[in-house]
Amino acid sequence: MWGTWWVWDARLTSELVLLFLYLGVISLYASFEDKVLAARAAGILAIVGVINIPIIKYSVDWWSSLHQPSTIKITEKSTMSTDMLYPLLINIFGFGMMIGAITLVRYRAEILARNGMRPWVRELAKAEEAK
C-alpha cells in the first residue's frame, strides 16, 4: 500500500531518532548503580529529547514525504473519513488510559522498592511472604 517497508522520509526518520532516544534513556537508567542518580541522568536526557516531539509532529508539513499530511485537525473538519477517524480517536484514548494505568502500577512497585527499610513496607513484605 505504501509500496515499501522503509524510506528515509521526514516522519519515519524522526521517529527512528525517537526510538534511539528511548533506548538511550533506558540504557542510561540501567547503567547507574544508584537509582536516584540514574533517574536524574535519564530525566535530563528525556527533557533534551522532548525537542524531537514537535519535530515529528510538524515534519509531515515541513518536508514533503511518503506520509500524508495531517488529517486530524483540531480547528477544522478532519480530512479523514469518520469510519476511520472515530476508531482511531478511541484507540488513542484507550492507549492513553492503558499507559496511565501501567504507570501507576509500576509506580507502586517502585515506591515499595525505594522504601524497603521503612516499617510499613516491612509489614507489607511479611504479609506477602505469609501468603
Binding site: I102, V105, R108, A109, G116, V121, R122, A125, K126, E128
Partner: peptide, 23 residues
Amino acid sequence: LATLITLSVRKKRKVLIEIAKKM
C-alpha cells in the same frame, strides 16, 4: 503489550518477596 502488563502487575509481588527475603 501482554508482556508489559503481566510483568508490571507481577513486579509488586516480586518486590515485596525480595524485601521479605532480605529481612
